[in-house]
Design a protein around this nucleic acid. Structure first.
Lengths: 358, 358
DNA sequence: GGCGGGGTTTACAACGATGTAACTGTCACG
DNA sequence: CGTGACAGTTACATCGTTGTAAACCCCGCC
């Protein structure tokens, strides 16, 4: 059933290596031999055994993408872009779900599926820079996504979280809101370095620039970045008395949860409370109301990450010091801070991004 | 940097095979030898070269999951479950995005990444049963998801689309709706066999059982199953004059798009138009209004698919004829057909499914 | 006619792991 | 004391592919 070089070689009456040469477009093959062998290759349906090839050449053409969870739309969309970018490099993507568990993240960086993957793109949740010391040129090339580990020993791509958060907050301020809450702070050890800490800092900076005080009553913590928690946090904020007139959620799923909670309390966005998120996930373009958000350049992030891996894998790239790139992001204003659009405008909702690949 | 069996064997003063035996928990190894070798394995940080191992044993422990698109929440959630189920079998999942393209789907079934993957789970969009003739026991084991190719030459898992659609329609009927539209029909060659055809048939059956006529004015076609198309189709329905009082959308993303279009037209769900979808995606639990849906057992589908692959890969399973399994689904009633819940009730929204893996 | 130099082809040895079969011992048993 | 049985260990071949270096052939040139 399986056709090997050997089988083709036997029938063609040439050596195995010659067939191999044809397969690999080696230059010095006589035209007659080439076409003869090629015909047999096609006829017999030869497919190279990639295990054997990779044992020999040390590359598999597979890279791993390790994400906390796939059912978070942000990661799902990002994964889609990574798969696309990888494909342009002739790579296939193996996806791993870490669930944000330290153990699994460590496993991934340590060379998960040893020798079966050429490189790893990881979006760490639990890992800190200290977990990566001791990584050397002998380890699998690693590219980190997101803010958790900046200035570590590995390549790194992220949005500028502080700037993004400031943009979101400033937008709420520009809409005349003065009691601006945040949803998404995370109590815990890495309050400074984590995503939450950075986004919170952006919020504080924007408030300070507007000479507004930081009111701890307006900070809602969450356990995870999912809709459920956003709804819970919003409800908690509303219960605390003096309600906010604007909420900056640390991501879109939290924001969608918050919108849902507002609806439960018969409050309207943006009239009663204006809501902003970060991520620009597809859902936010069709929610009721549509969600204002700070959109990271997901495609750019994916391409950059894949590109960095490509460079690491190129020969003689061992010496390159770890790089740290920022991806741009832009504000996308929708109904949750602007109010319902007219019909003409609203019908174009959702056309902002790419869609419908086919 | 890389540690091979050979390296460990040299330092331990034993043969390569003995080290291999320790690694693989072979029984006949003297306890003293075992602990000695094990200590060295740990110290030197040995990791098996999976390329070499798979060349030898013919298995890689990697299965491929080929989906039309990852940014559709239904597929993203399904992918998450497949990754989980695969992991319990010690497998890793390689994800491929077919974009619903025939060419790519064919490529996948033909043994994509030859010898690097042990099996394939494919959710076909463009492929028909005729494309799979000629698959033999020598090919990669294949499990199909979804309705496109029933009774083909490969294993198959799907929800009973006709029943699901009937359930959805009957629910609308039970809420007193009589002008029930559908969104999601697809004009084209496989009108009968495709998902759209089956779901449409369920709708017709339910109407017939209620002695209601099928009104072609109430059928809205789409180009894809995304929010944008749902919104477009809903708008089209509203423009056609006699508006529907209920809409059955062939999936949840279409339904969310439809809800959005209703909001644009200042219409309320369910008061003016009741809306039902299929898929039970996370977004529908938090949308405004929350979305009534027919929920397939995604986790069950994933486990079944992985389980079928497992059986195919078990020794001596070549003879098993292709199997065809149906996954159950159940109606989940939410606001889009029931009206807003009281506060106490609404606070439990979203707790229906599993959440928060960590 | 021998020699050098190319294009073309080949034999052989890897890559790192594991299955097979054979080789040691050691012990029990007749 | 010879014989088996069996635990423990090993040498060797093998999986399918590709890099290396050498062989081969044909041609032109001295």
């Amino acid at each position: 059933m399986k056709v090997r070089l050997r089988d083709v070689a036997d029938r063609a009456g040439v050596s195995v290596k010659t067939v191999s040469n044809v397969v690999n477009d080696y230059v010095h093959v006589a035209p007659a031999t080439r076409s003869h062998v090629q015909a047999l290759l096609d006829e017999m349906g030869y497919r190279p055994n990639l295990s054997a090839r990779s044992l020999r050449v040390g590359r598999t053409g597979v890279i791993a993408l390790a994400l906390p969870e796939l059912d978070n739309p942000y990661f799902a969309e990002l994964a889609g872009f990574v798969v696309e970018a990888a494909e342009e490099n002739g790579w296939t993507v193996l996806i791993d779900q870490t669930d944000g568990l330290r153990e699994r993240e460590l496993f991934v960086t340590a060379g998960f599926r040893h020798q079966l993957i050429d490189g790893v793109i990881l979006s760490p949740v639990a890992l800190g820079a200290e977990d990566l010391v001791g990584r050397g040129p002998g380890d699998v090339p690693l590219v980190l996504l997101g803010e958790k580990i900046a200035e570590g020993p590995a390549d790194h791509v992220a949005v500028d979280n502080v700037a993004a958060a400031r943009t979101a907050t400033e937008h709420l301020l520009s809409r005349g809101r003065t009691r601006i809450a945040v949803i998404g702070d995370e109590p815990g050890p890495d309050r400074q370095s984590g995503v939450a800490g950075l986004r919170r800092r952006g919020w504080e900076e924007a408030l300070a620039a507007a000479t507004l005080p930081v009111d701890e009553q307006l900070v809602a913590c969450v356990q995870s970045y999912q809709r459920e928690e956003g709804a819970r946090a919003m409800t908690a904020l509303l219960r605390r008395g003096a309600a906010p007139d604007g909420v900056f959620c640390f991501n879109d799923t939290l924001a969608l949860g918050a919108l849902r909670a507002l609806a439960d309390h018969r409050l309207r966005a943006p009239e009663d409370v204006a809501v902003v998120g970060i991520d620009d996930i597809e859902d936010g373009r069709y929610s009721v109301p549509t969600l204002t958000t700070v959109a990271p350049d997901k495609e750019g992030i994916a391409r950059t990450a894949v590109g960095m891996l490509a460079e690491r894998l190129a020969p003689g790239a061992d010496g390159i010091p770890p790089r740290d790139l920022r991806a741009p992001c832009r504000l996308v204003v929708r109904e949750s801070t602007r109010g319902p659009a007219g019909r003409a405008q609203s019908r174009t909702a959702g056309r902002e991004g790419r869609h419908l690949r086919r």
